[in-house]
Design a protein around this nucleic acid. Sequence first.
RNA 1: GGCCCCUUCGUCUAAUCGGUUAGGACACCAGCCUUUCAAGCUGGCAACAGGGGUUCGAAUCCCCUAGGGGUCACCA
Length: 486
Amino acid sequence: MPGVRVRFAPSPTGELHIGGARTALFNYLFAYSEGGKVVLRIDDTDLERSRSDYIDKLIASMHWLDLEWDEGPYYQSRRLDKYTGEAERLLAENKAYRCYCSAEMLAEGRSEARKESKAYLYPGTCRELTAEQEEAFQKEGRVPVIRLLTPDQGNTVVRDEIRGEVSFENANLDDFIIIKSNGLPTYNFASVVDDLQMDITHVIRAEEHLSNTPRQQLCALALGYELPKFAHVPMILAPDRSKLSKRHGATSVEEFYSEGYLPEALVNYMALLGWSPDAGGEEEIFSLDQMVNRFDLYKVTKTAAVYDVTKLSWMNSHYMREYDLNRLTEAAVPFFEQKSLVEAPLNNEEYNYLKQVIAAVRERAKTLVEMADISTYFYHDRFEYDQKGVQKHFYKENAAQHILKAAEELQKLEPYEKESIENLYRTLSEELGISTGRLIHPTRLAITGRTAGPGIFEIMALLGRERTVERLKKAADYIEKNLPQK
RNA sequence: GGCCCCUUCGUCUAAUCGGUUAGGACACCAGCCUUUCAAGCUGGCAACAGGGGUUCGAAUCCCCUAGGGGUCACCA
């Protein structure tokens, strides 16, 4: 389908939400799977809530996710003449009219309707104002809005690429506002004008916009333009099936970044929320390019998806294992910095050490934050011994002597490296007449404070002879002092 | 409340024209591997919201009910 043009049109009133990010993703996947183009448009006609720092953050998040675009960003706030121009035209063609009703009057009507538990529809009070009446209102200082004149009868049918035909009764649609009294267009009008003028062929957006679509079609009809195709993708819900909000943990792309998720994992996870590639496949790991190749808009689900952090975590740990080690190291630096383990910029030696640490721990962490967390003992020995481990490994018969003996031997070991350390431990345990585990477990506890972690010989080699021996001695000391008298 | 959308394992999902032991992934459980933890491998648990139709046959088509979500702004 040549000539496909989609747009992603966020409003800069907050950080990029996971739902918005997935909408952007689907737009991206669809456009490029069809050889089309992506337009980025900033819908910033709400002066009260739009903030320029959100625009920067939004764009930064898009780049981080690697969701690039071909055109834009365009800003609605810089295209205001387009909307007023089109509105003037509708006015001239008698397809729209000025309305002088005050916000107070409307609010009154609404609360009235609420009492009767009915939906409020603007009654069309100003539909047939005479020139004299308008002049009188203007002299009073009333500033009008512009409303679209909508049909009272018949139906407006939305042809949705995902949901099929959805029919709305025009009687339920009132003469809605297209230009506010401050001269700015409303969403339903601005987005239609832009979609039409920017030659957008497919409007792919969240399901919450489905109910607005008939209004937009009415706008397009009045403007005399051809309609783009619509596709409303399902929403993303919180685990309790309510709307996703801050109380459900991370919801914005930025938060996922700072919690230590990799962009590839987030993108991969989001894609699978509402879409799945060819049937039956066991594989669920896809790069952006692979997704583009397999994407099919018509296979997007109709059902809202519950966002579940567990699967994202699994996916993230998968990407951490598979990532190029240098890239992973670079991605990890800020997180190690945050824990005061390293200080950027790292010199060569520091970088190489960090790289080795990461190689050792990467497959044991689900996020970069967790990775930094479990790496602290590679940087300092300010750790407590895990108490369960102490019971289990330190208070065993002769544990202190064993550790001390190992320390002694390690001091003399040449060369001091992973393989030779392992050999030493194997022969030493044999000499002592104990299992290698009896030596290994207390050693791990002594030099890491933990009972779990990477291969112990790898840790010892990485830590170096000095720190290893020192920590072993310190542990032996601890055992002597704390060993319960039996 | 009106209008609109949706409903398959706990979660994400698959099932060409109606005929499958209803498949996969995550999570969970068990076993294997192993110096621990992970990872990996093997196996297991687990779903068609409910009720009516249509049909030889329904997860799939129709209707009703229930539940969830969205929307009803001079927000987008």
